[in-house]
């Protein structure tokens, strides 16, 4: 099962490399994007069998013999889990819109209303991408400090919504 998923992941054009294992009774797929962005939503739709969770990494850590370094991968998963907030489902259109946008930009699934952009790896250029998408999809030009000061999803949604109405 894990090997099948691993094989189909590796065959997918948007995936550079992948390693799949079972941890805490969950099938966990570690993936390295082939290009600069990777939509896990699209990846999930494209796969016949899907893992329980994804962890997106910039590179796959390897042990001395060239096989995946599972201990290091497990630490990456632990690190990502620590950076997550307990899941609170997005509650309105703007929260759902931003959650989807963050998921694609950050390579993290199930973004919740209490998650924090910077804690999850958001940086300057990703903030630029949010601003460009908000400009295109909602016609608002959001100053950078607004994203910096409102880095929790529900706060960001509220301030963008108020700018859109103004």
């Amino acid at each position: 099962m894990t090997q099948d998923i691993e094989r189909s992941l590796r065959d997918h054009a948007s995936v550079g490399s992948a390693a799949v294992t079972v941890e805490d009774d969950r099938v966990v797929a570690f993936v390295v994007p082939a290009a600069e962005s990777l939509s896990l939503r699209e990846l999930r739709t494209a796969l016949a069998d899907t893992p329980d969770e994804f962890v997106v990494l910039p590179a796959l850590p390897l042990a001395g013999d060239g096989t995946p370094d599972w201990a290091e991968l497990s630490r990456s998963r632990g690190d990502l889990r620590r950076r997550r907030q307990p899941y609170v489902a997005p509650r309105n259109d703007m929260e759902r819109y931003l959650a989807g946008l963050w998921e694609d930009l950050l390579g993290v699934e199930d973004i919740g209303a209490d998650d924090d952009f910077f804690t999850l790896g958001g940086h300057s250029l990703l903030a630029v991408r949010i601003r460009m998408r908000l400009q295109r999809d909602h016609g608002v030009t959001v100053p950078p400090e607004v994203l910096f000061e409102n880095s929790v999803l529900h706060e960001q949604a509220a301030v963008v919504e108020s700018m859109r109405e103004a």
Partner: peptide, 20 residues
């Protein structure tokens, strides 16, 4: 740090739009 981040972000945003 916030001022620096803000200004850096504006410059990146400017060139992202220009490149488009």
């Amino acid at each position: 740090q916030k001022d620096a981040w803000r200004n850096k972000n504006e410059v990146l945003f400017y060139f992202a739009n220009m490149a488009e």
